[in-house]
Each structure stands twice: as structure tokens, then as C-alpha cells.
Design a protein around this nucleic acid. Structure first.
Lengths: 205, 205
DNA sequence: GGTCAACCGTACCGATGGGTACGGATTTGA
DNA sequence: TCAAATCCGTACCCATCGGTACGGTTGACC
């Protein structure tokens, strides 16, 4: 299959683009540097992706697909207790959002936010807009199980996100916080679930 | 006084720098554009601030002082109930963090996060590191008043920040959310205080 | 009123990076 | 094995931007 090799090459190029992006930032990620890292020519880059924005748009889309898969996997590993799935979901989401990839991509969107918010929109579409439905579903399950009562589901979801993330994503994007360790992520997810349940549980513990 | 005029000129230049920054972003904020907006010469800019980083470092520092003053004012307008001061503090903080100025500055730090985190550090020093003590003090007051019980004050403060901010700052920085209206800010601050009190109140309402 | 420093406007320089063009090599498909 | 398409490497063009130099002008201070 020719398309297989093409796809592999494409992801290899995007991987090289990400490597340069992570090391040098968006403005430092020159097309020449990406081409060299990918052992490709600039002309190939332009022919495949149109321009620099197109290249990194491709990177964002690829990452979005990856992130979706990770979240799906986290939810698929169905735990016995519904509450535990909230923790697992939180861990997966926190791992994604504070990871190097998401941070680097968020920095692109921040740097380009003035020149239209094209990157931001794309990121939001593949980020929040795909996360919230899953979170809503999870919470609906919890409500059906009689664990919690949610008068305003959107509000409750927002509260959970806040408790889970805090200002960590901003500090990551700004560059003042290192990526949290697995243990720290687990602790945060556990704490967020505990506090959130305390807020909305039907029977106050 | 000559220094008065110098100070006024300096703040005028920084104001012009901010205007250009807001309109064009950090990379688009060329020294020439700032000079023109300030009716100054590039040479003056370089002589006063050293280089581009120095200019925007000055902008960040000026903004930090302004923000500190706003928070102090919010806390100084001492309300009768200590709980109300939590709402006032939240409104002030939310107004600051989602405002155009803070967002533009955060975008600088995001764009320059790879090349060392100099801007990020500066921003954190004048931001979180100056906010948290005040929040801690506020919460200590609440505990002394017997309203809440905080086993882990740092944790409680983090939870409050999460409830207050949610992912709004990130969405602002990314450019996908407009600055919230006064009413929305008030609603968020009120909600954060309500939920936080529900979490930590001594007597569950 | 005269002197001196600061400042404005402009012009200039070197470097860099996005985007294009082209020749030679390599792979693809029959 | 041969023709066609693709791709790599390099070189090139052009615009932009950070930073510097300089001459004319203004304003402060004596």
C-alpha cells in the first residue's frame, strides 16, 4: 500500500515538527529546522501542508486524535465503582493537559491568538468540546446511580474541572511549573473527585 | 520636578507598548511600532529599557503594581461579613486575571516560555506569589471567625482558585473566550465562594 | 541669552525566516 | 527495464525586525 508509507511519513514529519516545537517554541520552529529534523525538504513541507500554519494545524489535529483515544481508553477500562471512573478520567485528563505536547500546542495558540484565533478555535474544538460531553456522560451515570444530584450539570462539570486543574495548566503554559509526576497527578485527581463528591453527593458523608 | 515628567513619560511609553501589544501580539509588537505609538524614537526606547525584553519587563512590572493595588483596594473595602470579602476578593482577582492586560502579558510569557521562563517567573512572582498570601490571610480570618475549618490551608486555597477560575484563564489566553462581563464575574465569584464554603464550612448548611 | 544634554526622526545594517525554483537522485508502477 | 512522479538538497528572493548611528531640534538650567 502506498498510502501506508505516506501516512507513516506524514506522522514522522509531524513528529519532527513537534520535536522542534518542543525544543525551540513556535517562532523558533522554523520550517528549515523542521525539514532538517524530518530529513525532508522545505519544498515537501510546503507541498504537503501549504504553509507553516498548515503544518502545525496538522500537528494539532493529530494530537487531538491521540488525546481522544487516551480518554476513551481511560473510560473503557471500566472500574467496578462509578466513582473510581471519575478518578481515572481525571488522571487521564490531567496527564494530557499538563503533558509536554498539549502545553507546546497551547503555547502556539497563545502566541497566535492576536492574528485571529484559528489555532485556539481548533484546539478548543478538539479539546474542551470533546472532553465536556464525556464528562457530562460520566456525571449523568453518577446521577443515575443515585450517587449525586446535579441541579445544573454544566455548572457541576465546570466545578469539577476547576477542582481538578486549578491554575496548573496556566502555570505549565507560562513555563513556571514542571510537568507533574504520576503520583502528583493521581493525588490531584483523587482529591478533585473527593471534593466534588462532597459537593454534590446525595448523602453527605 | 523633572523626575515627575520622566515618570509620566515612562508610563506613557509603557502604555503605548501595551496598546501595540494588545493589538498585534508580542511578535507583532515591533520596537518601531511602539516608538511610533509613543511618539518616541527607537533610540530612546533602547536607551531607557535596554532591549525589547527590558521594555516588556517594565510593562509587566508596572502592571503587577497596578494589580496589587486593585487587590488591596478590594480587601480594604472591608465588608461587614467576612464571607462577603471572599466574594469581593474573587471578583477583583477574576477581573484582573481575565482582563485584556493580564491576558496579553500571559501570552508574552507563553510565547517566550521556551527561551528560558524569564517572563513567566516574573509574572508568577508578581502574580500567584503575591495573591496566595492574601488569600491565605483571608481564609485564616474565616477560620478565626469560626466559619470554616481548614486542615490544609494550601489545599483549600487551591480549591478556591480552581472553583473561581475554572478553565477560563486558559480559554482567555488561547483566544477562544471573550473577557467576561461584570455580571458573569460576579456570578462566578459568588458561586465559587458558595461552593467553597459548602466544602469547608464548620456547620453544613 | 547661551550652553548642554536629551530626544525625535530617519536612515542604515546584519541577520533571519517564510516561501519559491531547480537539478539530480530515488522510488513507483507497468 | 524503462518512464513518470516524487522527493531531497541547495540555493535564492524578499520582507521584516532588532539594534545602531547621526543630524537637527527642543527644552532645561545657569
Amino acid at each position: 500500500m502506498r498510502s501506508e508509507r505516506r501516512d507513516a511519513r506524514r506522522t514522522a514529519i509531524l513528529e519532527a515538527a513537534y520535536a522542534v516545537l518542543r525544543a525551540k517554541g513556535y517562532r523558533g520552529a522554523t520550517m528549515a529546522a523542521v525539514a532538517e529534523a524530518a530529513s525532508a525538504s522545505k519544498e515537501t513541507l510546503y507541498s504537503w501542508f501549504g504553509d507553516k500554519q498548515g503544518l502545525f494545524r496538522g500537528l494539532i489535529e493529530a494530537n487531538a486524535a491521540q488525546a481522544q483515544a487516551a480518554l476513551t481508553a481511560a473510560l473503557a477500562a471500566a472500574p467496578d465503582a462509578v466513582e473510581a471512573s471519575l478518578v481515572q478520567f481525571g488522571e487521564a485528563l490531567l496527564t494530557l493537559l499538563t503533558g509536554e505536547r498539549a502545553v507546546a500546542i497551547n503555547r502556539i495558540a497563545a502566541a497566535e491568538a492576536d492574528r485571529g484565533a484559528a489555532f485556539g478555535m481548533l484546539l478548543a474544538a478538539s479539546g474542551r468540546d470533546s472532553v465536556m460531553p464525556r464528562l457530562a456522560g460520566l456525571m449523568a451515570d453518577l446521577e443515575l446511580a443515585g450517587v449525586v444530584r446535579l441541579d445544573d450539570p454544566a455548572d457541576a462539570a465546570d466545578a469539577y474541572l476547576g477542582l481538578l486543574l486549578g491554575d496548573l495548566p496556566v502555570r505549565r503554559i507560562i513555563g513556571v511549573a514542571p510537568p507533574p509526576r504520576k503520583a502528583a497527578i493521581a493525588a490531584r485527581a483523587e482529591r478533585a473527585a473527593r471534593l466534588w463528591l462532597r459537593l454534590y453527593a446525595v448523602t453527605r458523608p
